[in-house]
Design a protein around this nucleic acid. Sequence first.
DNA 1: CTGTTAGCGCCTTCAT
DNA 2: ATGAAGGCGCTAACAG
Lengths: 348, 348
Amino acid sequence: MAEDALTAAALTLKDIARQAGVSLATVDRVLHNRPGVRPDTVRRVKETIARNAFQPHVAAAELARGRARRFAFVMPSGPNPFMQQIEAYLGEMSAWLATRRLNVEMIATDVFDPSVLAASLEALSEDYDGVAVVALDHPGVRAAIDDLVDAGTKVVTLVSDVPSSRRHHYVGIDNIAAGRTAGALVGRLVGQRSGKVAIVAGSQGLRDHAERIFGFNQVMASECPNLAVLPVLEGRDEDARSEQLLARLFGRHADIVGLYNVGAGTQGVANALSEAGRDKQVVFVAHDVTALTRRLLLQGVMDAAISQNPGHEARAAVRVLLALARGEPILREQEKIRIDIVMRDNLP
Amino acid sequence: MAEDALTAAALTLKDIARQAGVSLATVDRVLHNRPGVRPDTVRRVKETIARNAFQPHVAAAELARGRARRFAFVMPSGPNPFMQQIEAYLGEMSAWLATRRLNVEMIATDVFDPSVLAASLEALSEDYDGVAVVALDHPGVRAAIDDLVDAGTKVVTLVSDVPSSRRHHYVGIDNIAAGRTAGALVGRLVGQRSGKVAIVAGSQGLRDHAERIFGFNQVMASECPNLAVLPVLEGRDEDARSEQLLARLFGRHADIVGLYNVGAGTQGVANALSEAGRDKQVVFVAHDVTALTRRLLLQGVMDAAISQNPGHEARAAVRVLLALARGEPILREQEKIRIDIVMRDNLP
DNA sequence: CTGTTAGCGCCTTCAT
DNA sequence: ATGAAGGCGCTAACAG
């Protein structure tokens, strides 16, 4: 029955101050890399901090600050169910946020119009300690993000990244791997049969959609010689349009055995499938677990959903912003968003 | 550009006290259901608290307590890689724990011997604010857990539950659903082919193994008429024994198309599969993502792993114990452990 | 450059 | 049954 404490005793700032032969305030300055301390004093203090593996008490720090922290979430204004889920989960955190004196505000904007999005971001600069943004990857947006960062605001991209910006963190999945996963599932579930595979996307101009398609095609090319991928249909994430395009495709190809819906518009895709009377023979994989995809999985119309946990994304974004604001380390493993494969029996 | 604050202004205990016409101390007593307050005073104070949706500041509370909290993790003493992963993730949290003045201690014990486990638990009673335990479902263990609960200690079962006890929370997966998921995967990946399916378990006496087998068989019976399930092999979670048993089975049945390893001993199972020269034809599903299963997935020997995220389980256990100790609500959605399907392309 | 001091909001004795 | 008062460990003015 071995015992093993994972944490050490609890020193305080005052202990460090005494040990280093300086005042409380000086230790505080060093701890936060504030100016106005002689270099060798800095060194001496840092040394005592390190030697004692001193960890300031977050609760005390938080209390002493007084001022509450403000975070903004900049989200798409449209009726996107996935985004609504994220907002709902943020809402569920309200008690948690309140007891920590954290303020989270939602700012709806047209994230698909780069200039509008950039303007929304620029407008935030002074008012927030941190910003989470579902971002379009565009030079104007990148510049706006970098301006925020320069102003000292912590910035996290959410769901959709702008890798070329200087954002502090990205909370979302690797979309190429997600596409690969979708491809592997379609390939494995189709099995020995040969035939054609259809892809419906919102637009190939969207970074995440393009990446998913790329990953999907990688797997098709390298591992599914029995499958021929048809040209991508662009349904603009709209049900009606996706349904039309797909219905026409079904009319032209009798041997479609696999179907991958990259973005939204899943209802339309499912309609086309049912109306063609092929919902049982075609392997159908789409993204995200919503009320709709849950139903389709249970009905056996959809075979698998590739999903990113919206609750996790909401909470991870808040926690990362908070850690950044406090200067705490980020638990990367905890905040990483996984690619979930959801089938009927492991529906969350 | 609509704005919508998710949190309200920040009142303090003092504000409530003034509004209710009592002193700070009385509000504090009511807030924590402490005795020594007249019933109608209680009512009046509770009302003011509710009316203002007052939320005490956790940081202030934590600071004022002074005393650090102590949690114990009672884990199996053997060299189980999955448990070692949980311990490793707890280790990674040490900085996070330290800044919150939380103490987590590991206590290794023989969790498979009910009397030893019960004794270990009883020994903890006075010393800890919370206990997380990988528990065997046995009357003696149940009693020990209930004793802890009666003593005011918060108790969380981890990975393996004791549903009949009064533990405050279970952090782990639904093993029946996990078995169903495994079954569905084997069924879907085998496809049209017909043949036999082998199951290797540690022991059918272990609750989690029995539940997984039950779920697996459910799916086989109802949805895979083309597959015949062979009697369960009991490998005691040991590589050598599992390999032997399985090798013999392969000798007797030439038409095995599916294989489900319910517990540990995956190395042995994989060996038997390779040596029989069937690793490419047999659909092989096992549990957990370890160095080994990762390799087997990449090699194409394993087709899917059913997994529970050990890092998430470690952190969820700590967070739940902390929330219980503080009397905060638990974010059920956050702490729920999902059944992950991991294939080559979504390896974490 | 460095030190002193007054809180932050809550919990906890100790009085009343 | 209730109230008053002194911290908890850190931050942020303000002095020196």
